[in-house]
Amino acid sequence: MMEDKLDDLYGYVQERCLWQFFSRSWDRQENIDGVLGQAEAILSGNPPARGTPMEKLFYVDARTMVDDFRARFPWIRESSPEEVKQLMDGLKSRLVETVITKSTNRELKHHLY
């Protein structure tokens, strides 16, 4: 059940989100953590942080994604904060695996841009 839901979310992010594909592994990690962190807050009904420019950036990406999640996957509206956390953690580990740890992109670890 959780796996099916994760498949949905992962499929959406892979298809829609450019932030997972920044040029270097640390940017990808930062974006995944940042956007999913904000998404978790929004989905759990907590106010997302919008103080710094980067927090604002992650907020706008998360908000768009969450709006689409809610439109496409109605079950997410019923998810409890615990479930949301589980989903976001699961999504995060899938994304990290695909776009960082198991990515064969030879430029990910180059120390310069």
Partner: peptide, 24 residues
């Protein structure tokens, strides 16, 4: 166009803290 110009956006983020938002 992240291919031709992603580099300068990355550097602007690194050096000046300006966030990079990629769109289509």
């Amino acid at each position: 166009c992240a291919r031709s110009s992603g580099y300068i956006a990355n550097e602007l983020k690194k050096r000046y803290g300006i966030p990079r938002l990629d769109i289509d």
